[in-house]
């Protein structure tokens, strides 16, 4: 970390209000406080540092443009900014024209890294967390699929490949898993 301390939910909500009011310093505070974590999230999904930086910059611009849409009643401010970031990462991953410029071995390295990052993330959940307990109660394949989507940005096709199951099976595993997870967490 370089100087940025994580901010509380209330501080981040305040900073988003500042952005909505046109205060660039508020956006800069968000980058300074949360940029390191955002780079980490992006790097897990995109593997390459240059792509991760691009995704974080894209996300910051989107946060600026959409800050007025953030409502404090709709979940946490952190959840909101990280969702914008993951969305930008997935856009980069889905940009086939762009990926076609990658060497085949780079693409393979990227896929391997994304798989590895998802495994790491699941293992990195603190044991005391409800999400940890509830994921471990799911069918392991369903839990793996959900984490691959969230952490690695994998889509249904990629997940069914990674788990070597038909697409339909993969989709119903995920749906059942999400239902069970939600009930467990509520």
């Amino acid at each position: 970390m370089e100087g940025g301390l994580p901010v509380t939910s209330a501080e981040l909500t305040d900073a988003l209000r500042g952005c909505a009011g046109g205060d660039r310093n508020a956006l800069r505070r968000i980058l300074n406080a949360e940029g390191g974590r955002m780079l980490g999230i992006a790097q897990r999904m995109l593997h390459r540092r240059d792509l991760a930086e691009e995704a974080v910059q894209d996300a910051m611009v989107r946060i600026w443009q959409k800050a007025h849409q953030f409502h404090a009643g709709d979940g946490s401010a952190h959840g909101w900014i990280f969702a914008i970031l993951r969305n930008r990462c997935r856009n980069i991953l889905r940009d086939s024209a762009r990926l076609s410029t990658f060497a085949p071995e780079d693409l393979t390295a990227m896929q391997d890294a994304r798989l590895g990052a998802a495994t790491h993330a699941a293992a990195g959940l603190e044991e005391g967390l409800a999400l940890h307990a509830c994921l471990s109660r799911l069918d392991p394949a369903a839990a793996r699929a959900i984490v691959l989507a969230h952490v690695g940005g994998f889509n249904h096709d990629e997940i069914s490949d990674a788990l070597s199951v038909p697409l339909g099976t993969c989709k119903s595993w995920i749906r059942r898993g999400l239902d069970t997870l939600r009930r467990c967490l509520s």
Binding site: G36, L39, G40, I41, F82, A121, L125, E126, L131
Partner: peptide, 10 residues
Amino acid sequence: RPLDDTAPDL
């Protein structure tokens, strides 16, 4: 969100 929190702080 706890999955996001497992990301490294780079």
